[in-house]
Write a protein that binds this DNA or RNA. Sequence first.
DNA 1: CTGGGGAGGGGGCCC
DNA 2: CGGGCCCCCTCCCCA
Length: 264
Amino acid sequence: MKWAGLLGCEAVLSSMALMQANGIPGQKKMMSPLGQGQRDNPESHHSHHSHGHQPHHHGHQLHHSHMGHPSNGSCPPLLIRKDGDYHASRMMDEKSIQANQNMQPKKKHKKSGIPNKMKEKMEPIMPPMVMEDDSLKVQKNFICDHCYGAYRSSYHLKRHMLTHTGEKPYACDSCEMRFIQRYHLDRHKRVHSGEKPYQCDRCHQNFSRTDRLLRHRRLCTAGGVSKEEIQACCDSRASAYPQDPPSHTATWSPLQPSNNRLTV
DNA sequence: CTGGGGAGGGGGCCC
DNA sequence: CGGGCCCCCTCCCCA
């Protein structure tokens, strides 16, 4: 499909339109479409809570005025192309994208080898998802007008847009840090609390982050290392982290159970 | 190594 | 029931 470079401004929805349609998580005084699942309000993070489940606010105000994006407002800051928005090309929606992905080996998690920031700088001219054989590519219909980054859903695009606007909806109530993604805020909070709820079941080493634990486990189990070797490794670590194992027998686990889906 | 940041993707919820 | 949107988890990069 070669539509991406062909559209004029009139053929796209602006980010404002997108935001009006969907809401941007955490624009000050508003929260995402609480009508949609009415999840957390970022501002509610200022209140104390224990992990995770904030009171839901139901603000729905959109915040139009201060995006401060660099495109001067003469053109829409986003190029949004979806079914119906652009009739000439049949753009795939999220499900179709996923279905399409099933046609190929799943490429779990990006990695072009190009640093993300570099990619943004590299792709201002031609959108990245214009491919000769799009059947082999993940369809990403949501294009950022700032960097031409392509995203699979409006949600991912909106999230990405915050990196341009500098907006960080999720504020830490213990320090001045703010985050674009809520999960990053929750992750950050453990810096303050010092908690390391993720524990390796083998060596009982504790981690504050799931990805650290997972990486640890991968390293432990990578490359045909024998069980004995792993055990030896973990035993040595265990001496440095002489904590008692958790009572449960999960392969890993947050000491405070959560709804994560990690399976090792 | 630790912490922050950007992004991919699964799955749940609502319409 | 399916689509759209979103949350959450995970991954990886970088400082």
